[in-house]
Amino acid sequence: MSQPETSAREWPLWEIFIRSRQGLDHKHVGSLHAADAAMAIENARDVYTRRMEGVSIWVVESRHIHASNPEEAESLYDPATDKVYRHPTFYDLPDALKHM
């Protein structure tokens, strides 16, 4: 593309996290482009909270997010599958036992 030097760089991508109500976690809702953090928050307000979907916004530049590799899912999560004794339902107790 024959565009001027200054536009060679796209605005960076940001990941957007929204707290929908006081007391709940911030949840990932999507991403957008912005020149800086302040603009990312402003744009997130316009794009992701037009219908009162949020009371707080976090923005993180996408390049700062490190993700686990899906190909390693097996070795990462398999050790947990045979440890059902970590769940309360594993224990066999009489129905007569109350408040537990």
């Binding site: 565009q3 001027p4 536009s7 020149a35 800086d36 603009m39």
Partner: peptide
């Protein structure tokens, strides 16, 4: 274009 450039420069 100038708006996008200005935002990047800022």
């Amino acid at each position: 274009q100038w708006v996008r450039d200005a935002a990047i420069a800022f």
